[in-house]
Nucleic acid binder design. Structure first.
Length: 338
DNA sequence: CTCATTTGACCTCG
DNA sequence: CGAGGTCAAATGAG
């Protein structure tokens, strides 16, 4: 009596569902890339179609992330709870320390805890002596004190997470070396259509005790207001292009990037921002052979790590590798199931 | 008023 | 159980 438990069927369906979602997502993404080509840029209908495709992509991505959330437990498993407990107590968890037995640790916070640590995501790390703006819009969602580290680690996710279902995240931490370095670790790749500007590097001139370092490099024509930079705070681009996470169903800012930058640039956020190998060199860092490569450029160290876990057969890591077919993913050699 | 950041609780993994 | 990662209410900035 163990052959066909309903839960297993559920799992099987789940896998299928995930596969279908992945396929749909990939297809939509290819379409997006096609529509995004300069040749089609002037076509009005293409632009409209591109917009639609973006929405489809966002839906797919979100669906995928939802499905991907609970690998073991049923998706529908529980917790109506909800506000049923009446008094939402505006302070949620903070000020209700006065008994309030409802805090049975479980069944309290509806769906808190769906997060799961990623094991098989590809990450790339770069260490720079200063803050780097990679051309994407990030939103800070957390900060954590790390053991053995003097400085806290900051957590960012793509501003378009809900917007377009982009699951890219990054962590920034200041190393405790003598010359403090900013170590940025990227997780996942961007699926958002976010070509807000050519990448640039901003050097933090506010670092005390180092004036020789104060240079301001900027690649591209966009002039960014170098807003205040704190030691612990990462530089945030206050671009007009980013903003509201939940974009209105109507038209959103159309990326009218008819410049020398083709669509592919936006996926290359971790490569193209460094002029060193910008122009034509594809990607020296991410040769698919090495699991871990380091490249030292004039201003920092960049490394990419593609971790592959074999025994992790269940947690479909559809980390939105999406950009299959273009270039991006092929470089990463993504471990799609095995 | 809206939206981004702060910050402590919550949750999972090793 | 501790460390690391994420969530979301509260707060602050524009």
């Amino acid at each position: 009596m163990d052959s066909s438990s309903p839960s297993e069927n559920l799992l099987g369906d789940r896998e299928k569902l995930i596969q279908l979602l992945v396929q749909g997502h990939e297809s939509a993404n290819k379409l997006r890339l096609t529509l995004g080509k300069p040749s089609a840029a002037d076509d009005k209908s293409s632009v409209a179609a591109l917009d639609l495709v973006k929405k489809v992509l966002g839906s797919f991505a979100e669906s995928m992330s939802i499905v991907n959330r609970r690998p073991t437990e049923g998706v529908f498993d529980k917790v109506p709870a909800n506000t049923g407990g009446n008094s939402p107590s505006s302070n949620g968890r903070k000020a209700d320390d006065s008994e309030e037995s409802s805090k049975s640790t479980s069944a309290f916070k509806e769906r808190r805890g769906s997060y799961k640590r990623r094991k098989t995501t590809q990450t790339s790390t770069r260490t720079t002596p200063n803050l780097v703006d990679d051309g994407h819009a990030w939103r800070k969602y957390g900060q954590k004190v790390i053991l053995n580290a003097k400085h806290p680690r900051n957590y960012y996710r793509c501003t378009h997470k809900f917007d377009q279902g982009c699951l890219a995240t990054k962590q920034v931490q200041i190393t405790e070396e003598d010359p403090p370095m900013y170590r940025t670790t990227y997780h996942g790749s961007h699926t958002c259509q976010n070509l807000l500007k050519p990448p640039q590097i901003i050097l933090d001139s506010t670092i005390p005790g180092d004036s020789s370092n104060s240079v301001f490099l900027s690649f591209g024509s966009t002039n960014y207001p170098s807003t205040k930079l704190n030691h612990e705070t990462y530089y945030y681009p206050t671009s007009p292009l980013v903003k509201r996470e939940y974009s209105p169903p109507t038209q959103e800012l159309k990326p009218s990037f008819n410049h020398n930058q083709s669509t592919s640039t936006d996926h290359l956020f971790l490569l193209s921002d460094f002029t060193d190998f910008n122009s034509s060199v594809p990607m020296p860092v991410l040769s698919s052979e090495s699991d871990h490569g380091d490249v030292i450029s004039s201003s920092g160290v960049y490394s990419c790590t593609t971790s592959t876990t074999h025994d992790d057969s269940h947690s479909f890591d559809l980390d939105m590798l999406v950009d299959v077919g273009d270039l991006d993913v092929s470089q990463f050699e993504y471990p799609l199931d095995n």
